[in-house]
């Protein structure tokens, strides 16, 4: 339902999104039937394709040519896909969006090679763009995302962390790639530096809001909606915003302690979820997400008049209000 709403939201971009989808299929085509199977598995799992959408919308503010823009929209989605395949190995996740992950369907090595293949395809694809600045932005983003993931592993089950640690982590984990999607769409669309900056900042603020909402939904959505057990983040040791806001609660402290020893029962999980859902932490987290959304909307206001301004606002608000 939510994905359908999003599709409706950018229905006027549909023909270009269809081109991106086709290009993703082509990019993932391999001489190895195993890589083809794994890639098809990923494509069929779908996804919101929000990164390509942000590239397209940002580029619309400049000289829009889908044949050029796709050369950055497709690699950004591929990089996102590849990092999910590797993340599932790191998190030992068997399910994503209700489907078996590549590592669960085959094994960790197949997931590693498939991820490496997709990363390489992304870079191969992006080399059709000669603008060195594009490569510098993308490369820096890739390195920073990795740094963020290293920090996330270091922070697992770490009790003494604060909001600053959390925001630093989600900036790299999620916001950067959305920020870069907007920035790169704007650069390839030939926008001036000032408007590139506004779109880049818009992407950053929306990305922060997106991850906060994701972290809230991990507790408030149902197992079915999530396609995995609710509370999975905390089970894996990721201390996200709702938990940081509840870190002195005895049930939560006990749960974190048990999770760090992989000693959590189903009853423990349900009790933890009840505490989080009934607490004020969810409301506070929503407020923080909304603060980022307001900042994102301010950046939209600063952009020149264009029909796509409404689109940016709508997509940002959808992301901030989505239910799963």
């Amino acid at each position: 339902m939510e994905k359908m709403k999003l599709t409706l939201l950018y229905s006027d971009l549909k023909s270009d999104i269809d081109i991106i989808e086709k290009e993703l299929e082509t990019a993932l085509n391999s001489s190895s039937h195993l890589i083809n199977d794994a890639s098809l598995h990923l494509l069929q799992a779908g996804g919101k394709r929000i990164r390509p959408v942000f590239v397209l919308i940002s580029a619309k503010f400049g000289q829009y040519n889908i044949d050029q823009i796709k050369n950055i929209a497709v690699p950004l989605e591929l990089i996102h896909m590849a990092s999910l395949v590797h993340d599932d190995v790191i998190d030992d996740s068997d399910l994503r969006r209700g489907r078996h992950t590549v590592k669960a369907q085959w094994n960790n090595r197949v997931a590693m090679y498939t991820g490496d293949f997709i990363f390489a395809r992304a870079l191969e694809y992006v080399t059709s763009i000669e603008n060195v600045k594009v490569h510098q932005i993308l490369a820096k983003t890739m390195v920073e995302i990795c740094n963020g993931e290293v920090i996330q592993i270091e922070d697992k089950f770490r009790g003494e962390q604060n909001l600053k640690d959390y925001f630093r982590r989600i900036k790299r984990k999620t916001a950067l790639l959305i920020e870069s999607s907007c920035e790169l769409g704007a650069v390839v669309g030939g926008l001036d530096d000032k408007n590139v900056r506004h779109l880049k900042r818009f992407g950053y603020f929306v990305g922060m809001s997106y991850q906060i909402v994701d972290d809230i939904l991990d507790f408030t959505a149902t197992d079915k909606e999530l396609g995995k057990p609710a509370g999975s983040d905390l089970l894996q040791g990721n201390i996200t915003l709702p938990i940081l806001l509840l870190k002195d609660h005895p049930t939560i402290q006990r749960f974190v302690e048990k999770a760090s020893k992989s000693d959590v029962s189903e009853a423990d999980r349900l009790e933890m979820l009840k505490v989080v859902r009934n607490s004020d932490a969810i409301k506070q987290a929503i407020n923080l997400s909304n603060q980022y959304l307001r900042k994102a909307l301010k950046e939209v206001d600063a952009l020149p008049n264009h029909p796509m301004k409404k689109k940016l606002r709508d997509v940002a608000l959808f992301i901030g209000k989505r239910k799963f």
Binding site: H86, D116, L123, V132, L138, M142
Partner: peptide, 24 residues
């Protein structure tokens, strides 16, 4: 877990170095 990330990090670094020298 960090071995997965070290491979990804090195991969990002090679791209970053070549992007800085414009060696497309």
């Amino acid at each position: 877990q960090l071995t997965v990330l070290s491979g990804d990090y090195y991969s990002g670094r090679y791209y970053e170095i070549l992007a800085h020298s414009g060696n497309i």
